[in-house]
Design a protein around this nucleic acid. Structure first.
Lengths: 200, 200, 200, 200
DNA sequence: AATGAATGAGCTTTCATTCAT
DNA sequence: GATGAATGAAAGCTCATTCAT
């Protein structure tokens, strides 16, 4: 990478980082482009060389952060060794919930902005070049298992992900109706039930 | 009610209605107070006689609309006669999903703005005088059933509601990953599983 | 006074009192008619039955408060017994300065709004019926003294009053450049000098 | 100075000039930011690139105008040659009073907004780069004189300035209680008396 | 590629004043 | 006389976007 291209990447990364920090601390609505460029130390016009507007940079961030989240969980899974599909999904869930517990602003940011559509797209079309199509990796891995075969695996994934993301928001951020630790057993049971229903 | 008070109620209702129409069509962020009062045909200052700001009127609307939704579903349930708890909850779910299918902008509005906290509060503390505490009615009815006893009924309700609201958003509005009709069997199965897990 | 007239006077007095309290605490610019009527517990329209606008009520207040100030100082002077003109004026000055020290918001209010013109008029034309033409009383008393005769007594009064009012503002409120106690000796000396210059 | 910087200075100066013109003709309260930018022929947002709000630009103006006033008077004094301290102060006073007579709106503006604190600060901290610390120049010159030594020279300056500024407002603008020409002899006498009192 | 001064539409909010009750 | 809901002009201020440098 040439020096100029390196410089460009640094500028872009700096803008992304500043935006994330501001989005999570003040919220998107109250974050202005002025805020972002000021925090980044670049000129206002520069922002428009890299992003279309505030919502463009937000989408980049969601893709990036969601991808990171899954990559990390998956890496831990690989380390942990082989297990059956129930345990694998519970493992991933638990890992991601823990990541959210340690980074509540990330949870807030992702929950407020994530829908199944954005989520799927963001995993499929990584914004960065050295990112990969996570969604298909997970999906394929699911289909090619020796232990179980599934009908409608996409619906299964959809329901699991939606159940997790919607319940953990309230439980982790507000302990409502119970804390995440109290919720987990019920949540894990329900996830197991969902999986069972999709086994052929 | 005096003529003056009637007039006041009409003004307030007109503002609520205009706001709802605009929120659902353009979104909250892109709706300005100017838009609301213009649609209502009242002066700008009048808005501030009835509401603190845009978010105040939004909260009133959520409370009102969510309450209305449940009331309607519950009325149908009463008409349909006695059934066991599984069928009752499925009946309510189905009814509400159908309401959403017929009123997608309502779904969009409620989904984007509803969290468990706001939801519970909005059912418990109705904004209007002739509204009632729906949450406790449902909750009490759940506890006093002859057929089953539940452990942690609030967690049960929470999980069911979160599962429904998060999955139906994508399915109804975007048919993603499948249409709501294709999703329903799986959804209802999962709801049944959740209930089962909470039976003592 | 009939019950109705008494009621009217009470309303008016209440408005004056509320306005004074708000003017001194928040300043005239930041005090709205809404603030005044709210504090008074009367309706907005009522304000306009008694006063033209904010500046009308302010002028009433200046007249009233300035008159009160002088009346009080003069009463103390009468109690203190006869003295020569130098001591009399110093006595009045000292008394008024002390009143200001004990009531700094009054000083702030009067200083910010008082000019020689308003001041003179407010003493000459008392707003209330049981107030008297203080300016002429003092002026006449000055002219008819046995001990001294003055040339241009009005200029003398003018210079003394302006010197006192402009210096005491900064000294009492901000101790700038010195506290009022440190300033007094110099101030009194200067007042004596001014008087001397006007003795025939 | 680059073309761009020149342009910026022109914009800022234009805003200052427009504000001064409006403040003196309509008063600060009745002058809006819209008025200022309209008169300047710049966009509303531009105002906020240079000033925080209306009171910020007012303070800049006071500093600038007061400084200008003193600089001019002092320049004339230098031309007039050496004289004793009494004559010097009378000369400066007379010169400033004459400037006010020729520019009554300036007098109105400065009198309504000037307190000893603002005045001192505005002379000490000139807003413009090519302005100087006038207060200290005058103060130092006072202390280092061969002819007289003073006790509490700051109090002396304070009293003189307050006496002049408060009396000239009424005399110049309204000829109350007498015109400035009739007042001058008395005023100058009093200034001389004040100086005498501070000679060691 | 990068800058940042300039824009001006458009936002929220306030408030003096009116007038039907 | 008293009320207070309604008004709507006008205020202060923000900010995404442009474009000459």
């Amino acid at each position: 990478m040439s020096k100029l291209e390196l410089n460009k990447k640094q500028k872009r990364d700096s803008l992304l980082e500043s935006a994330f920090s501001l989005f999570t601390s003040k919220g998107i609505n109250k974050t202005s482009i002025s805020d972002i460029v000021e925090k980044s130390g670049v000129a206002k016009g520069t922002f428009y060389l890299y992003f279309k507007d505030k919502y463009d940079i937000r989408n980049m961030l969601i893709a990036h952060k969601a991808s990171q989240l899954f990559r990390k969980a998956d890496m831990e899974l690989q380390k942990a060794g082989t297990m059956d599909i129930f345990d694998e999904i519970i493992f991933l869930t638990d890992n991601i919930l823990n990541q959210f517990c340690e980074n509540k602003s990330l949870l807030n940011f992702i929950s407020k902005n994530l829908s199944w559509g954005i989520f799927k797209t963001s995993l499929i079309n990584p914004s960065d070049d050295n990112e990969i199509d996570f969604y298909n990796i997970i999906y394929t891995r699911l289909l090619n298992r020796e232990d179980y075969k599934f009908k409608d695996p996409e619906i299964m994934l959809f329901m699991i992900i939606e159940l997790i993301s919607s319940t953990c928001y309230s439980a982790i951020l507000y302990s409502e109706p119970v804390s995440i630790d109290e919720l987990k057993p019920y949540l894990f049971d329900s996830i197991r039930d969902i999986i069972k229903r999709h086994i052929c």
